[in-house]
Design a protein around this nucleic acid. Sequence first.
DNA 1: TCATACATTTCGGTG
DNA 2: CACCGAAGTGTATGA
Lengths: 236, 236
Amino acid sequence: MRLVIARCQVDYAGRLTAHLPPATRLILVKADGSVSIHADDRAYKPLNWMSPPCTLTVRSPEEDEAAVTADLDASVAEVWEVKGKDGDTLQISLFEVMHDSSHDLGIDPGLQKDGVEAHLQALLAEHPESIAAGLTLVRREFPTAIGPVDLMCRNESGAYVAVEVKRRGEIDGVEQLTRYLELLRRDPLLGDVRGVFAAQQIKPQARVLAQDRGITCVTVDYDALRGLDNAEDRLF
Amino acid sequence: MRLVIARCQVDYAGRLTAHLPPATRLILVKADGSVSIHADDRAYKPLNWMSPPCTLTVRSPEEDEAAVTADLDASVAEVWEVKGKDGDTLQISLFEVMHDSSHDLGIDPGLQKDGVEAHLQALLAEHPESIAAGLTLVRREFPTAIGPVDLMCRNESGAYVAVEVKRRGEIDGVEQLTRYLELLRRDPLLGDVRGVFAAQQIKPQARVLAQDRGITCVTVDYDALRGLDNAEDRLF
DNA sequence: TCATACATTTCGGTG
DNA sequence: CACCGAAGTGTATGA
């Protein structure tokens, strides 16, 4: 990884056209060839970047007439041109370099995650009764023409119940479930299909929309479910 | 901005739980207090991060028993604890520091963009006939109870046409337009309202859904529109 | 402050 | 390779 602190100007042309006026910034050149430009704020998003695969070409400004403008040519030390795979380009004009160091980091073992929707879905699949009393699982990822329903269940009276699982319940989740229900209800083998929208938190607007469409909302306690799981582990 | 290259282990607890095993990485501490951890690949996304506002506390490992594990205590040099506003925490255990430098960057003038949806909408507003022959603009951002319709037009026979503009046409865009149309059609003053989904690219699934709902799909050539605009500039 | 829509979204999964 | 959906999404804008 190469770290460069420099006064620079950046021009991007690709899916959009963007320009960064001259200022001092951090330029990161990583081992995979990717380049990103960071200001002194925002942890997550760089000001500008080029995703791999891409190639970086460094040249002095006089090598390329086009890169030399009347205002800038006197002070430009180097011009970096980064070309992406879709023909997009990032041109970095460096005026003054304050810092430049390279470091060998090696490959990263990577991030281990827990608590995402997949886990929530797995826990609910193991404990469908926590969604509604008497509910039993038919299968996870129940296939439809427009994609799989998270959980297909049956209630005490044998009716099918399609469950959409979300960490945060918002309008688009209700729309998604609505589309599934529309399709499922066309299948005469399934008969009437109920809809349940299960999430850790459900936004008021999503709740109203769901209610309007006859979809039941269930808020799920992830920690309690995990506890249930742990308790089970201990018991059996 | 502070740049630290160090062998470190990272643990995040917040909306999810995540863990980074010991490895050499770049740790960025920015002027706004934000912290991000980068591996030697991926331009855009850090391995882990804490968005501002947040506070960084540095301490030697013996100050906090909880942070000291049997496996690690011998080699841990420092433990950084970053607390976010929602009570989420990022704990960085540093084993060995290879580089540590600080740089004053000042505030950034920021990115200047062109080519986003707003511009596309503006161009289409100036050239509604490029959406469909005979179309004339009534107004941009036509207000409804659930939000503004991008473009409200009328066709040759005087019927209202609601146009949803997207750079990339996907299912949620069709859903959005559907909601608008549902509302607009309740207004007796407007009469029948047609729907047009205009985008640079329209995904097949979105196209199918739109067709099913009687919404017309139009793919827009952004460069041609911009050319039309430039040509106009030259002519008048 | 909250809700919504956009993003050069990025990123991972599946067909 | 495409499409599709999730993300600790982040970010800007308007109510």
